[in-house]
Design a binder for these strands. Sequence first.
DNA 1: ATGAAAGCGCTAACAC
DNA 2: GTGTTAGCGCTTTCAT
Lengths: 338, 338
Amino acid sequence: MKNVTLKEIASQLGVSVSTVSRALTDSYEINVETKKKVQKLAKDLNYQPNPFAAFLRKHKSNTIALVIPEISNNFFSLVIKGVEAACQENDYYVLIYESHEDFQKEQRIANHLMGGRVDGVLISVCSETRTSDHLKEVLERKIKMVMFDRVLNDIDVSKVTSNDYGNSLEATKLLLSQGCRKIMFLRAGLHLTTMDNREKAYRDALKSYGLNIDDSLVKTFPPSKELDLEELKAYLIDKKPDAVFCSVEHLAIACYDICKELNLKIPNDIKVITFSNLKVARLLNPSLSTISQPAYEIGKTAATLLINEIKGKHQEEGFQNIRLDSKLIKRDSTKKML
Amino acid sequence: MKNVTLKEIASQLGVSVSTVSRALTDSYEINVETKKKVQKLAKDLNYQPNPFAAFLRKHKSNTIALVIPEISNNFFSLVIKGVEAACQENDYYVLIYESHEDFQKEQRIANHLMGGRVDGVLISVCSETRTSDHLKEVLERKIKMVMFDRVLNDIDVSKVTSNDYGNSLEATKLLLSQGCRKIMFLRAGLHLTTMDNREKAYRDALKSYGLNIDDSLVKTFPPSKELDLEELKAYLIDKKPDAVFCSVEHLAIACYDICKELNLKIPNDIKVITFSNLKVARLLNPSLSTISQPAYEIGKTAATLLINEIKGKHQEEGFQNIRLDSKLIKRDSTKKML
DNA sequence: ATGAAAGCGCTAACAC
DNA sequence: GTGTTAGCGCTTTCAT
């Protein structure tokens, strides 16, 4: 079966291409009879408009790019779901790009996007990203942008984040209230705004308890899963903290593995809390206390914001800065005694 | 900054549009000097070709669709990652579509795809899908297709699956060898080939042990996460199996929750094994025995196959039927005694 | 080696 | 209410 085009329908019906085009977009100036005729034939032939022709004409693709560091990740995969939901509601499509926490790849993606493949981009930058020049170039090409979670400060776009500072403060204070005094903070990635906020809250919480801050208890590990377990193990053995606050899930998982190996009992010997969207945290041994980001909502909110911007709505309101609350769920890994 | 086009470059250089086009595709018939000149300016202006114009001309978009029932799922999110990897290697792009286990949505997606948005589609059908008419129509529009995991038998395309039968046989025999004689099999979704294969293996394994098959021990639950916990609980209480073989992860998670509630000890009172790509299965309480599908490889293999088909390679070989092995990992949830 | 021109399928301004 | 026409940006014949 060859592809059905407007021309095909037009010639079969003995009308012009533009009449068909108008009939199909339900233009008010078309005779009801003609309209029906055209619509019927289009349906019978299962006419599907060639999107590229329309895009070329209108310079609108109804497509957005979603650029994330890592696809297979409990947080980002929920984000994807939220984005997909918002797009399905608005008849938009999602192109996925994975930067693999690699700044060069992110740059290449940005470059590609400048070609006008998409009407807008949704991005959470990779951990190596320090400047926003590549993103600014995209903006200059009149492509809309919304950042989420890992945002950059020196760029003027709408942003959707979670309340990293507030929730980290809460988490640290929980550990303190359980009696912990030697709390380790594990960062993932050097230059991420999310990490900065989480660490700052950790420090402020300690200060608010009148404690001195031991910088050697704060350490950065690779953001991706290629974590050096031995290094982390040695660090834990060396420092012997009474609690570990992990800024990302895979660090907590690593701690669980290491504690098992070292025969350290959680929470008696050491307490653990982490940022995580792991659904089965409650079933771990012991159940893991988590700060759970509203990943789905972040994705959905960011995508809706972007689509509205593309449509030119809410332009007047300027750039939004939306901060959503995460949920701290206390479980056994932070219990006083088991 | 306005968008740079071929015309722009041509006029700045005083050459024709076609010369620029040829220079940029590195055509052999262009003077080396001109080529250099053009390429330099293109780079300076950061020229990015308008993809839609090229697509419209060539009827190739270098884009494939990935249609899956559910994005936020340990199996599918790894598949996405694999697909993305294969596409990045080949300079292809991925459009994500989520069918939400809803056949009507799947049909709508298929319809949309017929418009020629993509050169090919990668699909794992939803649990409600019983016929392949909607997919055949896509094929008729000369759009290539590869199915993976949840495939359909009555359609002629390449398929990538995992060895559901073999690995389920192995899993059931493991339970049998641990002394279980009243093994429950929990299906998810009525019409899935994957489920059929898994159930058949379960039955064959019982037969090979000379056991009678009690049909009331096989039951189907909804494939998505909207599982009725109470129904499953009542079923478990009623049947009192000594083992449960779950065909998907969320059923096993539900069993864990229910066992906790009913104070049934895994594996002493009841053993559990499941298909799952959960990374932290080893950290559950007790650690969960899993059949882990090679999700990343499935995605990568399927995408590579599709891209090759689009490129017209390996056409002669006809449709492939690739079956990859899953990995059975024995953990405490199927131990004889703890 | 380079240019002119057609055309991919669609939309929209402009006739009538 | 409908047709004519131009043009979106690119590739690709066909000239020269």
